[in-house]
Design a protein around this nucleic acid. Structure first.
Lengths: 337, 337
DNA sequence: GTGAAAGCGCTAACAT
DNA sequence: ATGTTAGCGCTTTCAC
């Protein structure tokens, strides 16, 4: 009476099938040279035992694990969520898997990437997080590509990136607001340190300035609802009151709408225009009808996956910017339609 | 000029440090018997090479990977998202990692779990998905515990589960609605097949029936906004119109509110009471003020992790139900307060 | 086409 | 406390 609680090994299968252990390996290796009959025998034996090759052992030999490491900022934004969804679908189609870490603090990212490296992941994807240059260098040295999603390189050439056109989207929004007749602008930034926020901010501001308008009033909302509520209150309390608010993401824009409507009694669009960024689901709900800019997350992830699978040239990783499209809605229309 | 692109091995470190390879292993093994001086030497050598033990090799020997497999339903709900966040934090504190799969279709789950097994994961967590009994048996046979989150066992004793008190929450809601004076009830279910939805539904319905009221009118919303919009339209168009709607989750309840308010011109609370389940962020927004039942996701995940880490008794896996708390808001009050 | 044998990088006896 | 020796389960020469 054997007490093994472990899975059957290639040896077990070999014994039952009456072949060598190597033959079992070959039976499960796609283009290996093995007779059809042998393979059948092996498969039958494997079936009866419920055997499947141990991927850990394979990884050890091949030096690669079939695993892609993903580090996600915490809390997960809707954007990183859909990115993860898309990524999982594409990668599992390619037979790869995802090891996920959520980076609570900002400094934790490096630690996570170190761990990832120890699993010999085939690549590292950073969603809404960045990693130290030192570590990026080490990944590079070990041949593990790093791809950064929505965080363009800060002068480092050790990782590739796929980024949405944050500047362009913000500029579209500024143009639109101007054309709708809004003139006194307020801005709710994400984090001052976040490049995404900075790009959205500068795309917006620099267009306005180029048109001869003053810098918009600015508050920081930290990408969170609470922060945005405070920021919106401050901005809308100023005299003269801004007649349009641009928020670095939709989440904050929805908060701003709630403040404008329920605390200041303003009618959205007519009294104050409010625009966001990302086109999350709620933006299209009838209570909000939020003007926003939509980044094609799926397309972006497709690019990421293409980079991952081709093990993109290590010498000079590429940086891609993907355009989205502007979606005007009633939250920035003087008169509803 | 060496061309290795691979990470340094324990052997490399041993040579530099002038010790045996086993000593290197011991230096990195927490309570191993090794002299302080030797460990120092090893660490210095390791540092200079950027060496960290290869977890793949370790997993191969130990027969366990330090990886927990998670299968998430697609699209990810806010609940599974926060569950994932919490899980990641707790597990990484315990030195474990998460291999994530998103199950697009429903039948894909088995395939994913098979893959997980091949990585010799230490446990499998099912978020909003279920697995075939056959596979559950195999996991059991291989000593890999399966824990199901928010999906109680359908008669199978091959996996453990941690579930929110769906029946209890729904019953609370029914009591509250009745006490608020609502009398003609409508119900928007999730999926008919989903046990979560069935429990919420039956908890609600059976309380009403026990009070001598008729079965509520019922539509299915598939847990999605689109489905809920249709369902709400149908229910609110009936004569006599229901004066209260209970939805199997908040997401659908928000959709129902939008329909009632913007399509039927009803005042929420006064003309029609609407309640949901889950207490997602949006439920507390001023545009909704949705009455709902909050499940303590973090606590639930803590239980899950406890089960995972103690490698819960395999013979008869436990099933835990966790209570939440009822949150009455204005969406079910005849007169606002 | 197939088996024997040598590792992948590490841990765990077993000696010393 | 440390080195030596076997493997973990697989892939991959290398003979045949």
């Amino acid at each position: 009476m054997s007490n093994r609680i472990s899975a059957p090994s290639a040896h077990d299968v070999a014994r039952i099938a009456g072949v060598s252990q190597a033959a079992v390996s070959r039976a499960f290796t796609p283009g290996a040279s093995i007779a059809k009959a042998t393979r059948e025998k092996v498969f039958r034996a494997a079936e009866s035992l419920g055997y499947r090759p141990n991927l850990i052992a394979r990884s050890l030999i091949k030096g690669e694990s079939g695993i892609v490491g993903v580090v996600i900022g915490n809390p997960m934004s809707p954007t990183s969520m859909s990115a993860l969804d898309a990524l999982s679908a594409l990668l599992s189609a390619a037979g790869k898997h995802i090891l996920v870490f959520t980076a609570d603090g900002s400094s934790a990212v490096d630690v996570h990437v170190e761990d990832l490296l120890r699993y010999r992941v085939d690549a590292v994807l950073l969603l809404t997080t960045i990693v130290s240059t030192t570590l990026a260098e080490r990944c590079q040295a070990e041949g593990v590509p790093i791809i950064s999603f929505n965080r363009p390189p800060r002068g480092s050439k050790f990782f590739a990136s796929v980024t949405g056109d944050n500047r362009g989207g913000a500029k579209c929004t500024a143009e639109h607001l101007l054309q709708q007749g809004y003139r006194r602008f307020g801005l709710i930034a994400g984090y001052s340190e976040s490049s995404t926020s900075r790009d959205r901010e500068s795309g917006f501001t620099s267009f306005l300035v180029s048109q001869g308008l003053p810098q918009p009033e600015r508050e920081v909302g930290h990408y969170k609802r609470e922060g945005a509520l405070l920021a919106a209150r401050k901005l809308l309390a100023r005299k003269p009151r801004p007649d349009a608010l641009f928020c670095a993401n939709d989440h904050m824009a929805l908060a701003a709408i709630d403040v404008a409507r329920y605390e200041f009694g303003l009618e959205i669009g007519r009294d104050v225009g409010i625009a966001g960024f990302d086109n999350i689901d709620e933006a299209s709900w009838p209570g909000y009808e939020l003007t926003t800019y939509s980044l094609p997350v799926e397309t972006m992830i497709e690019k990421v996956v293409a980079m991952l699978l081709t093990r993109t040239p290590r010498k000079s990783p590429g940086h891609t910017t993907v355009e989205g499209h502007f979606i005007p809605r009633n939250s920035t229309r003087r008169t509803r339609k």
